[in-house]
Amino acid sequence: MIINFKGANTYLGTGGKSLDINKRTLCFLHGSGQNHLSFIQQARFFAYKGYSVIVPDMPAHGFSDGNPCKSIKENAEWINDLLVKLNLKDVVVIGHSQGCLVALELNRILKNSLEALIFVAGSNEIPVNQFLLDLSKENPQKASQMMVTWGHGVDGDMSINKWPGHSHYGEGNNIMCMNKPTALMYDLHSCNDYSDGIDAAKNIKVPALAVLAKNDQMTPLKSGLKFVELIKNCEIHILNCGHFLPSERPIELNSIINSFLSKLK
């Protein structure tokens, strides 16, 4: 659905069901240069399981207008204001990649009042190399293409997909191309500049789940494992795929999230 938020048309994917604020809400936060479509196979799945689902397109991403946020903190404040506007109280946040950093900051703002945090292919830090930072400014389309090919595991190369007829690369590139051209650059800089992740991770007091990818070239497994060690009682799973875990291993991811959610109060 499209809402007017902070003076801009803002799109929230709801998984094909209408938002019901009386239900537990799963709020999915997309990664750098992505949008709600990186959770195609999660949004409908959880909406049809009886949760309220929101998958916001961050400003200048997907179908949302507005100017891109310029730091992880700004992203987190934007999400916090959105949750307030929608009057959502019983919220589980699921971040992918950059969305994990935003989730960490959001949890600080909300002083551990979320119901749970789920980190997918995430870490407490996402340094970005200078080449990609520069390319995202000069040629965002090319930078997107490189991220899509680096980001996927072997299944990407060969278009191995349980979703009949779909190509990870073709779809991934076009999802990123839907964003405003400056979106990627600000996202990558936000990730690179973020340095509060260790404190934020140590500060987590809500139930936490991390699903990491064995062949992650964007947030390497090593970094993800260090990150989850900082979190008290974090449930950890490692899947054999690349960084684009939500589309590479949707069924496994959904099942892990589903059983984690069923254990929550």
Binding site: M158, S159, P164, G165, S167, G170
Partner: peptide, 21 residues
Amino acid sequence: SNPTVAALEQRLASLEGGASA
């Protein structure tokens, strides 16, 4: 959809550089 047909579809999507087939 069918797994054999899907393999063909994914091959075509890949060869054409498309999102899906």
